[in-house]
Design a binder for these strands. Sequence first.
DNA 1: GATGAATGAGACTTCATTCAT
DNA 2: TATGAATGAAGTCTCATTCAT
Lengths: 207, 207, 207, 207
Amino acid sequence: MLTRGSGSTKRLGRPRIAEQQEPTSTRILKVAARFFMENGFEGVKVEEIAEECEVTKAVVYYYFNSKADLFVESMKSTMEMVYNSTKKILEGNGPFYDRLLTVAGSRLRLASTLDMHAIMRGTEKMLTDIQREEMEQAEFRLYELLVDAFKRAANDHEINNIEPEVGAWIYFSSLNSTYFALQHVHSNPQVLAKSLLDALFSGIGQT
Amino acid sequence: MLTRGSGSTKRLGRPRIAEQQEPTSTRILKVAARFFMENGFEGVKVEEIAEECEVTKAVVYYYFNSKADLFVESMKSTMEMVYNSTKKILEGNGPFYDRLLTVAGSRLRLASTLDMHAIMRGTEKMLTDIQREEMEQAEFRLYELLVDAFKRAANDHEINNIEPEVGAWIYFSSLNSTYFALQHVHSNPQVLAKSLLDALFSGIGQT
Amino acid sequence: MLTRGSGSTKRLGRPRIAEQQEPTSTRILKVAARFFMENGFEGVKVEEIAEECEVTKAVVYYYFNSKADLFVESMKSTMEMVYNSTKKILEGNGPFYDRLLTVAGSRLRLASTLDMHAIMRGTEKMLTDIQREEMEQAEFRLYELLVDAFKRAANDHEINNIEPEVGAWIYFSSLNSTYFALQHVHSNPQVLAKSLLDALFSGIGQT
Amino acid sequence: MLTRGSGSTKRLGRPRIAEQQEPTSTRILKVAARFFMENGFEGVKVEEIAEECEVTKAVVYYYFNSKADLFVESMKSTMEMVYNSTKKILEGNGPFYDRLLTVAGSRLRLASTLDMHAIMRGTEKMLTDIQREEMEQAEFRLYELLVDAFKRAANDHEINNIEPEVGAWIYFSSLNSTYFALQHVHSNPQVLAKSLLDALFSGIGQT
DNA sequence: GATGAATGAGACTTCATTCAT
DNA sequence: TATGAATGAAGTCTCATTCAT
């Protein structure tokens, strides 16, 4: 086996092929998340995931008990990542407007929805109640993060005293229709994010 | 109540007409639309649709060439209906706010998404390019209706000069996440619709 | 109803539409025979036959009890016709060569096989033993007609004393591969028939 | 004897290898060819082939994309084999008569037709144009082999100067009506083959 | 005579899942 | 770890057949 340098110190620059390979299970998880977000649970075949990872189906089952498991794990870990990065941004400094803009920008770059209800279409019979609950919970936590941020912003008089749940919902659902907006509103994510924020902040009513 | 097959000896052929009011094909179309909107293409079995219509699978195929066809037809006719009713409301008199409120109210009462991109998840291989195009077109026409309404409202100084495409998008996508909002924001459609409109008109920014 | 001239005397020239229509059952029989000969039992749908006759499937079942019945009837009547016309020709005067040539010419113009074994492929479970027997019998009678003619010709010293069964078989099977021969040997039926007869009579061996 | 599932608890997955000699895919190919030649495309169910191979339907689809594919593959490989063995015999030494006799003998022992046009009855809608073309081509190549042999034999003065295409056709079509001839002419393949050759060489005409 | 609407059995095909190696 | 070969359940679709009108 080709090991060079036995320590944990990573070389700078592009890693060699051997080193850059993440563990198979991680690769599967990432590919699965991407596929599931794009095509929903029923729209993805285990074989497709395996192929994209350049392994066989059986390998997927070596690491995950079932397609449902893989689905739940992959979506949970994705939501976790998004949750963490969103949280970090929202807790940062700077005007609320800017922070929402940053969040929007990074979400729009994903170019695939995180709408759990859409992703989970048709999983009623495949997932246990607990699994479904967990996934909806993951989505809800993300939403709550926004609600909290809106509340704090209102407290700090950064935004007016609109219902924070409603503000968060509108913002949240807009970010979930990324695909449509990039196609029909503005194809540039940055421009789109800015337009969204401006409209959201100024409102559409005559003053 | 209409119970079928009281024994195991169901005769073939056309049953006595009974009190059937609606043509079977219409019934199938409606049931299919409801199911597809709730569970997506892959999440619905033809047999389920047939069962709900109290006919056999073969009847569905008597009226529609394939599941894909039924899918397209049912969604197109649903979009058509929504389009017409939305158009009627938007072209009515009264303040723009009120008209948007009415549209929102009726859409929220549907309690299922019209988000084509979400509904069509995983249909890439089942639908022809033309079919996909048609369905996306149907969604786009609905969106354009809103954009036009926003433009006219701006012309009439009913709303400020925000980008109409952006305003329509935000409004549009909020209406498509009905399910989430009714569960987590306000369970009453009327209240929810009003909250949405208020937030949209006043904006969240400090004035 | 449009009846003109009540007797049975038929007018000369092209009959009027109404008059020229043969009874529906006859039309069905003819179309069925043509389709079955071209595509075999399983390769033909009752619906196709009905369509070609410009009636509905149910009409076919009004006249015939089942697809198998229609198959048997149509093939039997076709074989009957071919049998009769072949018999007439073979019993005529003139040299044996000429009579075989005439038979060959008329068969080649059919441009579809009468090979019962081929046509009946896959009917084991659909036809009763009696039905199958009848059909094979029909083919065999046609073959016997040839054998008899060969025997008589040998008696009359019109042909040499080859085994008549073998001569009939070769002639018979050549006529059944019409399709192939017209495509690859000679596209003109008359020429093809003559070539066949010449080869058959002279033989290929050096004398 | 290899009995499967002694109870109702058949385990999933790959069974212990046992004494399987031939690869499963080869076995399927052979069985399929036999069945298709005997019953035509529509007359054979995938399940039957699987059963005869003592595997499940799914295994057949593991090796072949569709029934049509299996059909084409199996027939092509059969034609290939027949082509090769025929070619070998025809290119051998000895009198032309003897070589044709050997070919006839081996073909008659197959006891099932190779008449592509007959086998392909009713496959118009199931096969692509290319697939149909390939199969007809396979038949044509076999025919050409005969034509060439007839031509060479004529050159070598082994046969008279009859049209080689016609001679090949007659010989070819006789070999394709094996089933009929064994039943009605001579039940012994060797005898039948000899009769065919004799009639073919001497011709039926008076000299 | 003729038809439209319906049925049921069965065919083809897909796919998650398993297991010997 | 990894895989190729296999399974069974289920889903889509077809088609001969029936029957009230």
